[in-house]
Computed example of a mutant assay.
Amino acid sequence: MGIPTIGLGTYRLKGQEVIDSVSQALQLGYRHIDTAQIYENEAQVGKAIADNGIPRDELFITTKIWISNLAPRKLIPSLEESLNKLGLKQVDMTLIHWPSPDDKVPMEEYLPMLLEAREQGLTKKIGVSNFTIEHLGKAIDLVGAENIATNQVEIHPFLHNRKIAEFAREHGIQLTAYMPLAVGAVMKDPVLQAIGQAHGVTPAQVTLAWLMQLGYVVIPSSTKRGHQQDNLRAADLQLSQDDMAAIAALERNERIADPDFAPQWD
């Protein structure tokens, strides 16, 4: 199975809220669920998956290895712990959540362990997240582009991340856009509102359609049934070249996820 084009993000969702969000999404037809060790919600995501009884081979579940688990002796045990919490024997994709801060743990140590986790059958696909051109280039040298299923990075109408997008495209690496709705900011943008009105859809649907038309996987997060349903329907929206150009003009390098341990962005 390739990476389903639209998934449900679970960042910032905890406890019953994440159980309800994932359950509702699965009932609506979502089959791609994105979690991470640092979200501290893998057990709840697992509960929602188990309770909904969707055949395992229809689901695509992603988790991410946190920076404190990048040391070679920790990486695989931490993934086994994630699987235990999720109640799964295997995830569909495991990503390195962030490159090691200041590259304290060399990539030469943790990327081979990710390959090893795949060899052991703990994960079907492997990839990275928040990797810069420099990091991605090094990862390609170490394990080959064919072994990097995606680079998950922040992309939305106000941050296009064009340099890394171009580099990934040149090397045949799929990009996954996280925070695609800029934490709700797209809803207030007059350009996106106008395009939405012209098509009879929401600014969120316009944004997701734009990203998917550019070839990205999207993982919007939502707890509201109506929003989840709208997000799923965005796949059916076809934007014109004029629409795409108008959204392209919204770029203002407005980065939301920029922790103090982040790499030097391109």
Rank of each mutant, 00 (worst) to 15 (best):
P4H: 04
Y11N: 03
R12T: 14
L13K: 05
G15W: 08
S23I: 01
Q24H: 08
L26G: 08
Q27A: 14
N41H: 08
Q44P: 02
V45G: 05
V45S: 02
K47W: 06
K47D: 04
A48E: 04
D51A: 04
I54N: 03
P55R: 04
K64V: 04
K64R: 09
L83Q: 10
L83C: 13
G87N: 07
K89C: 08
V91R: 12
V91N: 07
M93E: 14
T94F: 09
T94R: 06
S100F: 08
P106C: 04
M107F: 03
M107V: 05
M107H: 06
Y110W: 09
E119C: 06
T123Y: 07
K125V: 05
K125C: 11
I126F: 14
S129I: 01
N130P: 02
N130D: 00
G137W: 03
K138G: 12
D141C: 10
L142R: 03
G144W: 03
I148Y: 04
P157M: 08
L159H: 10
N161P: 06
K163P: 05
R169D: 02
H171Q: 11
G172F: 02
T176V: 11
P180A: 06
L181N: 14
L181S: 12
G184A: 15
D189P: 12
Q193A: 14
A194L: 03
H199S: 08
Q205W: 10
V206T: 10
T207V: 10
Q213E: 15
Y216F: 15
V218W: 01
I219N: 04
Q229T: 10
Q241P: 06
A248C: 06
L250Y: 09
D258I: 13
D266V: 07
